[in-house]
């Protein structure tokens, strides 16, 4: 396994992204990962707030239309996330913070998939969101916050941390 991870890390592509001075290399991957985060976690959290009762004038049947933008953010981050993992696969794979981040994302995505059944219900705006739906919405916000926190902490905690000032 470590061999495979090492191959990923030493591949020509990984080396270029990691070591090139071009703004199109590492800086752009990081930028896309941040914008993708804004799309997926931002839209998801706002929809969770709506399910919790904020801005109740916004009909759920209508706001459903922005969900493809949330998923677009998810796919961008899956791809850029895989690239960022490849760059130092051997260290990321043994970082508890990294796996914590993935667990939070896995849970958040599972909840977003579960919320589809709320949106698929033709009577969605006729009945109130039940306790279960509200708990899932709340947990989804917490999971995104957890994923963002773990993602940020990757730069500061655990193996592979580059010593930084500040």
């Amino acid at each position: 396994m470590m061999n495979f991870l090492d191959t990923l890390e030493q591949s020509g592509f990984s080396t270029w992204v990691r070591e090139s001075n071009s703004l199109l290399a590492y800086p752009s991957v990081l930028f896309l990962h941040t914008v993708g985060m804004g799309f997926v976690a931002g839209i998801s959290a706002l929809i969770d707030l709506r399910l919790l009762g904020c801005a109740s004038e916004v009909r759920l049947a209508d706001i459903k239309k922005v969900l493809p933008f949330m998923w677009a953010g998810f796919w961008v981050n899956l791809v850029t996330g895989i690239v960022l993992f490849m760059l130092d696969a051997t260290t990321k794979s043994v970082s508890p913070v990294f796996w914590t981040k993935l667990v939070f994302i896995g849970l958040a995505v599972a909840m977003a998939l579960n919320q589809r059944k709320i949106f698929d219900d033709p009577l969605v705006d006729k009945r109130p969101i039940d306790m279960n739906g509200k708990l899932i919405a709340f947990a989804s916000i917490l999971c995104w916050m957890g994923a963002i926190t773990a993602g940020r902490l990757l730069a500061y905690v655990g193996p592979g941390v580059v010593s930084q000032g500040g």
Binding site: G38, G42, V66, I148
Partner: peptide
């Protein structure tokens, strides 16, 4: 980053 996410969510919707 959490602030950024809240802001982007509203800006997008």
């Amino acid at each position: 980053f959490i602030g950024l996410t809240m802001l982007m969510g509203v800006v997008l919707i």
